[in-house]
Amino acid sequence: MEADAAGVEFPGFTLADLQRLPLPAGEPALEPGNGYVLINVPANVYADAEPVELATDVVGFPVQVRATPARYSWAFGDGAVLGPTEDPGAPYPDLRVTHIYTAPGRYDVVLTTHYSGEYSVAGGPWLPVEGEAEVVSPPVPVEALAARSALVSGAAPS
Results as ranks from 00 to 15, higher is better:
residue 37 V to R: 01
residue 92 Y to Q: 14
residue 101 Y to P: 00
residue 109 V to N: 05
residue 83 G to R: 02
residue 89 G to H: 02
residue 73 S to D: 12
residue 65 V to I: 13
residue 102 T to I: 08
residue 104 P to V: 14
residue 35 G to R: 05
residue 9 E to N: 12
residue 58 V to E: 07
residue 46 Y to H: 11
residue 112 T to R: 12
residue 112 T to M: 13
residue 48 D to G: 15
residue 43 A to W: 02
residue 50 E to N: 15
residue 111 L to D: 02
residue 60 G to L: 11
residue 121 V to A: 09
residue 14 T to L: 00
residue 55 A to K: 15
residue 27 E to C: 08
residue 87 D to T: 10
residue 54 L to T: 01
residue 65 V to C: 09
residue 19 Q to V: 09
residue 119 Y to N: 03
residue 46 Y to I: 01
residue 114 H to A: 12
residue 89 G to V: 07
residue 117 G to Q: 00
residue 83 G to E: 06
residue 122 A to F: 01
residue 44 N to I: 00
residue 6 A to S: 15
residue 33 G to F: 11
residue 33 G to I: 07
residue 42 P to N: 11
residue 110 V to W: 07
residue 106 R to A: 15
residue 85 T to Y: 03
residue 121 V to E: 06
residue 18 L to H: 00
residue 11 P to W: 02
residue 99 H to K: 10
residue 31 E to M: 12
residue 26 G to M: 09
residue 55 A to N: 15
residue 68 T to G: 03
residue 87 D to S: 07
residue 80 A to Y: 09
residue 90 A to I: 02
residue 86 E to V: 14
residue 89 G to C: 03
residue 65 V to Y: 03
residue 71 R to S: 14
residue 120 S to P: 01
residue 56 T to F: 01
residue 74 W to L: 04
residue 35 G to F: 03
residue 32 P to Y: 06
residue 117 G to K: 00
residue 87 D to V: 07
residue 51 P to Y: 09
residue 117 G to A: 05
residue 109 V to R: 01
residue 8 V to A: 15
residue 114 H to E: 13
residue 32 P to D: 01
residue 51 P to V: 08
residue 24 P to Q: 07
residue 42 P to D: 12
residue 19 Q to W: 00
residue 82 L to Y: 11
residue 66 R to Q: 07
residue 38 L to R: 13
residue 75 A to W: 13
residue 38 L to Q: 13
residue 118 E to S: 09
residue 26 G to Q: 08
residue 110 V to L: 06
residue 60 G to H: 12
residue 115 Y to K: 07
residue 8 V to C: 14
residue 84 P to V: 04
residue 60 G to A: 11
residue 91 P to K: 07
residue 80 A to T: 14
residue 60 G to M: 10
residue 48 D to I: 15
residue 90 A to F: 03
residue 102 T to L: 14
residue 35 G to A: 05
residue 75 A to E: 15
residue 58 V to H: 08
residue 5 A to P: 10
residue 79 G to I: 13
residue 52 V to I: 10
residue 75 A to F: 13
